[in-house]
C-alpha cells in the first residue's frame, strides 16, 4: 500500500511538473504589458502547456546588472530588448547562449548584418532630436549647428540609459575625432541629464526645454495619440544612428527547448507586426508597417554605426571622456 501511495505521489508530482513548465523571461518595462498580453504569446503558452514568468526591469541596464549578478546561478531563460552595447557586455561575461533560429531567414536584408551568433535583432529605430516647433522656429541641421544653437537640450545619461549611450555613440560615429568639440560646445545648453528616456520625456512634456534626444518615431506617435504634430522630429544631415534591440537565450546548463521556440516566435509576423504601434520601433522582418509610419517616420539615407570591436575597446574610455567634459 505504501509503495502504491508513493508511486501515486511521484506520478502526480511528475504530472504537475510537466504541466507547469516555467519559462522565465527578463524584459524591459516598456515590453512588459505588450508582450505578456500578446495573443501569439498567450496561445504559445496554451499550446505548450507552460507558464511564462515575465520579470520586468526599468531599463535594459538594470536587466543586465541582474544577469551579471546571476552569472553563476542563472534564473532567466530568455532576455529581451538588449541594446547593442548590452549584448557586447553580456557576451564578454559569457551570459548568452549561441543559437540560430530557423526564422532568421525572415529578417530583412538591411538588418542581417546585425545578427550575432547568440543575439537576434528583434526591432530597431533611429535616434533623433525631438523639438517643439512653437519654440524652435529654425531647427539646426547638423550636430555642430545644434551645439551652437544654444537651445536648451535634455539628454539621457549615457551611464544609465541606453538612449543616452546611443546618443553619445551617434556623436562619435558622426563627428569622428571632433565629437568632444560638440560636447564642449553644447555643454552649457544641456538643461537636464535624465537618468532614463521616460524621465527626459516627462521634463520635455512639462516644457523644461524645447529639445530632447529621442527617437524618429516620436512624430508618428504624436499623430497617432493626439492627432497633431505637437512635437517634430529633427533628422541631422550628419547621418542617423540605429538603435537595435536584441533577444537572446541565457547561457545555462539546461537550456529549455521552449526558449528556442520562443525566440522563433518573436520573429514571426504575428509578433513582428505588433512592434510598430506598441514599442514604436521598426520590425526587423519584412512585415507591413502602419500607414502612419510611412507618413511620419523620417527615412535616413546615411546610416551610421560603430563596429562591435571598437565599442568593446573604447566605450569605457569614451564614457570617462564624456564625464570629464560634461560633468566637471
Amino acid at each position: 500500500m505504501k509503495k502504491k501511495l508513493t508511486l501515486l505521489f511521484l506520478l502526480t508530482l511528475s504530472l504537475l511538473s510537466l504541466s507547469n513548465t516555467i519559462l522565465t523571461i527578463y524584459l524591459p518595462s516598456n515590453y512588459y504589458n505588450w508582450i505578456r498580453t500578446l495573443p501569439a504569446v498567450v496561445q504559445f503558452q496554451k499550446e505548450n502547456a507552460l507558464t511564462i514568468h515575465f520579470v520586468s526591469f526599468d531599463g535594459t541596464n538594470k536587466m543586465l546588472t541582474r544577469l551579471e549578478l546571476e552569472k553563476n546561478n542563472p534564473k532567466a531563460d530568455i532576455v529581451m530588448g538588449l541594446s547593442q552595447m548590452n549584448t557586447i557586455i553580456a557576451n564578454q561575461s559569457n551570459l548568452l547562449y549561441g543559437y540560430t533560429p530557423q526564422n532568421i531567414s525572415l529578417i530583412s536584408n538591411s538588418m542581417k548584418h546585425y545578427i550575432l551568433s547568440n543575439a537576434i535583432p528583434f526591432d530597431y529605430g533611429n535616434l533623433a532630436i525631438l523639438y517643439d516647433p512653437s519654440v524652435v522656429k529654425n531647427p539646426p541641421k547638423t550636430f555642430m549647428a545644434l551645439a551652437k544653437s544654444n537651445y536648451p537640450l535634455i539628454i539621457c545619461d549615457p551611464r544609465t540609459s541606453s538612449t543616452g549611450q546611443d546618443f553619445l555613440l551617434w556623436t562619435i560615429a558622426a563627428l569622428g575625432p571632433n565629437w568632444q568639440t560638440f560636447w564642449k560646445l553644447s555643454k552649457n545648453s544641456i538643461s537636464f541629464i535624465a537618468p532614463s528616456w521616460d524621465s527626459a520625456f516627462s521634463q520635455f512634456e512639462a516644457g523644461e526645454s524645447p529639445m530632447m534626444v529621442s527617437y524618429a518615431s516620436d512624430e508618428a506617435y504624436s499623430y497617432y495619440s493626439y492627432n497633431s504634430s505637437r512635437y517634430k522630429v529633427l533628422s541631422l544631415s550628419d547621418g542617423s544612428y540605429l538603435e537595435v534591440e536584441f533577444n537572446a537565450i541565457i547561457n545555462k546548463q539546461n537550456v529549455s527547448p521552449y526558449s528556442r521556440k520562443f525566440i522563433e516566435l518573436m520573429l514571426t509576423p504575428s509578433v513582428q507586426s505588433t512592434i510598430a504601434l506598441n514599442n514604436w520601433m521598426l520590425p526587423t522582418t519584412n512585415v507591413a508597417l502602419p500607414e502612419i509610419f510611412n507618413k511620419y517616420y523620417p527615412v535616413s539615407t546615411k546610416q551610421l554605426s560603430i563596429p562591435n570591436i571598437e565599442l568593446l575597446k573604447n566605450l569605457n574610455l569614451w564614457l570617462e571622456q564624456w564625464q570629464s567634459i560634461v560633468l566637471r
Binding site: T65, E68, R159, T160, A194, P195, V326
Partner: peptide
C-alpha cells in the same frame, strides 16, 4: 539629487546607483 539636481550632481549615493547600473563594477 536625482529628480531636482540631475545626474550631473554626483553624490556617493547617486554614484552607488549609477555604478551598479552602468559599469557593472560591483
Amino acid at each position: 539629487i536625482l529628480n531636482l539636481g540631475g545626474l550631473k550632481f554626483s553624490t556617493l549615493e547617486v554614484s552607488i546607483a549609477t555604478t551598479l547600473l552602468s559599469s557593472y563594477n560591483f
